[in-house]
């Protein structure tokens, strides 16, 4: 399963080296403050878990890194250089690949077309360069098999695959195209136990190959299985920011379940 990773991971990645550094990053949409004072470092060879309830600002954080919306406070550095992305293409060009839970693929298109979408292989130059269809089919099929996904027909629309398989196609695609930072947006949210396992194994494999992984989830159990560093967001601010050595699953779970508010609530309810 790690074949793809060891083959395509950037050999210049050194474990522990900071890839993305965010300092006091904030984002407002008009009068609405979605994110405030976020300090986050994504290091090579580590999984940074971002946890939070619905509306905590997780999506906004991803969108800033993925280039869907630029931030408007603080600074973000990629490889030590300050950046502000105005399109997903810019982010991809910096080696940051995002796998979205809901908008990863175009369901009516074939599996292999989805795999290569936006980075098609062509022979020749200009707008009429022909696609290398046979090569793309072969590579897509091989890469998916390495992840343990065997599709019945590489020509079938991707909408006919299961949720876990689609997620795997999207991750395999990101890694194949040489991502250095992999952002996974709730990759296990809609999956069953077995499929979540496959995705988590792949996440760990990406980490071991030296990639920086940002793992967004609201499931502390999944996060704790693979994470090196944990950040919990609440109402757009970080309420917990600890290394794996400093935090236990109990504390993560308690914080996610509501933390101090929950304690207060239980007091009230017991009266």
């Amino acid at each position: 399963m790690t074949d793809t990773l060891s083959e395509h991971a950037d050999p210049e990645l050194h474990s522990g080296e900071p890839l993305i550094e965010m300092k006091d990053v904030g984002k407002t949409y008009g009068a609405i403050r979605a994110l405030k004072g976020i300090n986050l470092t994504v290091r090579a060879g580590e999984v940074t878990c971002v946890l939070g309830d619905n509306g905590a600002g997780k999506s906004t954080l991803i969108k800033i890194m993925a280039g869907l919306h630029p931030h408007n406070e603080g600074t973000m550095k990629v490889d030590g250089k300050e950046v502000s992305f105005s399109s997903p293409r810019e982010s991809l060009d910096h080696g940051i690949a995002t796998v979205y839970q809901d908008l990863a693929v175009v369901s009516l298109m074939e599996v292999w077309r989805n795999f290569f979408l936006g980075s098609e292989l062509t022979s020749g130059r200009g707008p009429f360069a022909t696609l290398r269809i046979a090569d793309m089919k072969r590579i897509a099929d091989e890469e998916l098999r390495k992840m343990g996904v065997v599709v019945k027909d590489i020509n079938q629309p991707i909408g006919t695959l299961s949720g876990g398989q689609r997620q795997c196609v999207a991750i395999a695609r990101a890694v194949y195209f040489g991502a250095r930072v992999l952002i996974l947006d709730e990759p296990t949210a809609a999956l069953g136990v077995k499929q979540s396992g496959v995705v988590l194994k792949y996440t760990a494999a990406a980490r071991d190959a030296g990639l920086g992984v940002v793992f967004i989830t609201h499931n502390p159990h999944h996060a704790y299985l693979v994470g090196n560093h944990f950040v919990i967001l609440k109402l757009g601010q970080a309420v917990l920011d600890k290394k794996r050595a400093d935090v236990g699953l109990d504390e993560l779970t308690r914080q996610m379940a509501g933390g101090d508010e929950l304690t207060e609530l239980s007091h009230e309810l017991q009266k």
């Binding site: 293409r89 979205y100 908008l103 175009v106 077309r113 979408l117 936006g118 980075s119």
Partner: peptide, 19 residues
Amino acid sequence: NWIYAVGGNADSARAVGVP
């Protein structure tokens, strides 16, 4: 490929770098 992607799911297409 881009035309199909843009019509099928414009957000996905944009996210993988299709103009």
